[in-house]
Nucleic acid binder design. Structure first.
Lengths: 244, 244
DNA sequence: TGCGCCGATGTGGTCAGACCACACTAGATT
DNA sequence: AATCTAGTGTGGTCTGACCACATCGGCGCA
């Protein structure tokens, strides 16, 4: 079924992955070795490697040493985020749908996290640290937003679902360009920052107290309010953005 | 920032997409043309094309005529599904997390769909047709599962959120191999089919009646029951699967 | 003895040019 | 008029070469 050469390479690598012959953190053999091993040209190997890279499975670097070559990583959020970005750009996914999905995902995650907090205490130190970091008065909008993203991701991670975490950070990454552009047009950024800080604190407190419904409601309102204020995800908009 | 040649090609194509110079359904210029236009080798163009293909943005075919060349499509579910499969294979996403996320996504979607049904009637003909098709007595397990997938996707689509639809069908595709393998081990497949049919009918009826909470509860129970019965997503399992 | 330089080595990144299989097109042939 | 055939342009593949880079090891100098 894999008639194209690069697909042969992919399926062989998939088999190695499934059988445990390849491990995350390890390295892929060199391109020339793979080409000889699978009896295809080096160009076909490279096409397969591009796909693996796009899938968040490897990271490549030239040179020599432990950081060089094609190193196996595990970044499921990267390909999902990239896919969302591309289809946003091609105007076949509305930004509003991503915003709505974020509300769904995050409110579930915070409800779940708060519920878990009731049965056994969660480690909230990372979230608390990020909350504190966002108090710094001299943060630029993009710096603040970067911390904001990490805070949200950290909260969602408390739910303990890797798929939900990956989708969450992918969505955030996918619309990041829109958010940055929209924030630049805000008239009262300092006021917005103050609001976001207090809302963040409330969300974290609700999770820490195990108040599931409250945590879910707070985060949904938080996301809704932010996107309404910035105008992102309202109606059809044909803005585009820069790639990372 | 795009130091590698294929990334130059990607960012140029992204710009064309954002500016509307490329449209879904249209075709990319030939590889040789792109190579000359962007002053890179044809191999670099091909690497970019492989990435676009992996992202569900183009479909390529050799030969000539309207179906040949690199044709722009919009399939956001494909890259997400592929990403889930790869990271499932590399054992960095638990199957259980996907199952849990499906419950979350689908119960939200059916609740939303039922709510929309109350304000304005939805078009349920596609779902009804799939429901009827699953009544055929001579379906093989894989045929039944294929219809089952389409039925679930059709129901979720009623919520009107393209991102949720894409994620839903991606998750279903991602674990398809596990499901097919697990179903083969069932002792009472006919009984399972009977159960699934009646549950499907109940879900569709609840949506049609605008009973949001009931629809959400039914689909969550439906998914949970199925995966419990088949054992998919229970504990850590190191099965693998075939690619499509 | 110790330090620093510098080439050897092997990695991914890139290029050029060639040929193949395929599918359609248009003209030549019957 | 119907059929065959050569032509054309597409993606798919291969070969072989060179570049940039990072490391490592040995040589030469202090």
């Amino acid at each position: 079924m894999a008639t194209r050469s690069y697909q042969i390479v992919l399926s062989r690598i998939e088999a190695d992955l499934a059988a445990g012959r390849l491990e995350i953190g390890g390295r892929l053999p060199g391109e020339r070795v793979l080409a000889q091993r699978y009896q295809v040209s080096r160009q076909s190997v490279r096409e397969a490697i591009r796909v693996l890279e796009a899938m968040g499975l490897i990271r490549t670097a030239a040179g020599s040493g432990p950081e060089a070559g094609a190193i196996l990583i595990a970044d499921p959020a990267a390909p999902i985020g990239a896919a969302l970005r591309w289809h946003l750009t091609s105007r076949h996914l509305p930004v509003a749908d991503i915003v709505r999905t974020r509300m769904l995902i995050e409110s579930w995650a915070l409800r779940e996290a708060a519920g878990r907090q009731r049965t056994g205490p969660l480690d909230l130190t990372a979230s608390r640290a990020l909350l504190g970091a966002m108090d710094a008065p001299s943060l630029s909008p993009s710096e603040f937003l970067a911390l904001d993203t990490r805070f949200h991701v950290a909260l969602v991670a408390l739910a303990g679902n890797a798929v939900v975490s990956a989708i969450m950070s992918a969505m955030r990454a996918g619309i990041e360009g829109y958010v940055v552009a929209a924030v630049a047009g805000l008239t009262d950024w300092p006021g917005m920052v103050t609001l976001l800080r207090s809302e963040h604190a409330g969300m974290l407190e609700a999770v820490g107290d195990g108040r599931a419904d409250r945590a879910a409601a707070l985060v949904a309102a938080h996301i809704d309010r932010f996107y309404r204020a910035t105008g992102v995800g309202q109606m059809d908009q044909q803005d585009h953005h820069e790639r990372g």
